[in-house]
């Protein structure tokens, strides 16, 4: 848009009028209110950041899934043990220690298996 002499004259006239009206300084009460707001918001944010993460809740689905994984692992170990027992009965002296874990349920531990059954198969074989 081309500025005409009239535009410039209006600008100068109004700039002069507006310039006389200095920006008002904020009142003390205003500054106190704004400072309190800022502190309150910052405090609320600290509470949110510091809040503990919620503990995982028990879930039947997860529990069954974990149990299923553990049972499958146990069965596999037994089959391996039986197989090893057949192949070389002396290779399995005391038993099998099976450790397992399931990230879904956080379930983990160590199981000791008695290998009587394996021994039986092995001696019979």
């Amino acid at each position: 848009m081309t500025r005409t002499p009239q535009d410039r004259s209006e600008d100068a006239f109004l700039a002069d009028l507006f310039a006389e009206e200095a920006s008002p300084a904020p009142s003390t009460q205003f500054l106190e209110r704004v400072t309190a707001d800022a502190a309150e918001v910052a405090a609320a944010r600290r509470v949110i950041v510091a809040a503990p993460t919620p503990r995982p809740r028990f879930s039947f689905a997860g529990w069954f899934q974990g149990m299923g994984g553990a049972v499958a692992a146990m069965a596999t170990a037994m089959v391996i043990g039986i197989g090893v027992g057949y192949a070389d009965p002396g290779a399995i002296a005391g038993g099998i220690s099976l450790s397992y874990s399931d990230e879904g349920t956080g379930w983990s531990g160590v199981e000791e298996f008695d290998l009587d059954l394996v021994d039986t198969f092995a001696t019979e074989g």
Partner: peptide, 26 residues
């Protein structure tokens, strides 16, 4: 700085911008 917890930064921002916001509102 304010987001990291520095309250003096909030006071500085207020000092810097409040007058003009009040003038616009007025």
């Amino acid at each position: 700085r304010y987001a990291m917890g520095d309250q003096s930064a909030a006071r500085a921002l207020t000092t810097r911008h409040a007058s003009r916001l009040i003038a616009l509102g007025y």
